[in-house]
Amino acid sequence: MTTDNDAGFGQAAMEYIDSLYGYALTLTRDATEADDLVQETYVRATGAGNRPDPDSNLKGWLFVIMRNAWLNQLRHKNSGPHFVELDLGEPPGAATQENPHVVYLRKLERQQVRDAIESLPHAYREIVVLRDIEGFTYQEIATVLDCPAGTVMSRLGRAREKLRQRLQPRIRRVDYGLTKEGRS
């Protein structure tokens, strides 16, 4: 692997660090373990002989590496996942000129969405993150989870149903103070 290729790979791989960190938090539910898992993922990726081209599905490949690394860690650990209060900051680009009250309500809504996702059983939480947060296709999710695409569809359907049950009453309460646009 040449230095030019390494530089191109490194630059492309760095673009997914936020997504990988979010997925690592979903898997581990622990900020320190997520930090370690992200680093291990990049170590494995840089040492892999079968790196995909930066313009192919690099993101999916990195997610597969992360999930395999996490499963490997689980096999060698006695301790179960730890729960931790996560630092939920504003997402990048969230700065706005909007009414502070509306901004507050939207922030509250995001918090409630995140809480609802966090409250899902692991398999449901993971598939919601892969599809609705990270935007993977069903086939890509099937590759990451190493399961048939049909399983992805059915699991995603059940996960969303649970999420809807947990989310809708909360969103309605938040939505009360929003503009018509907010209720669309």
């Binding site: 530089a7 490194g10 936020d18 680093q39 840089t46 969405v113 995140r114 919601v128 609705d132 947060i133």
Partner: peptide, 27 residues
């Protein structure tokens, strides 16, 4: 789905982690 997709993406890798990974990827 719009609510879920807009609300779920809140995580940003900590600067320390970003720096470590960048160092690791330095060709």
């Amino acid at each position: 789905l719009k609510t879920v997709r807009e609300g779920g993406k809140l995580y940003v890798a900590p600067p320390e982690l970003r720096a470590k990974v960048q160092q690791m990827l330095r060709p």
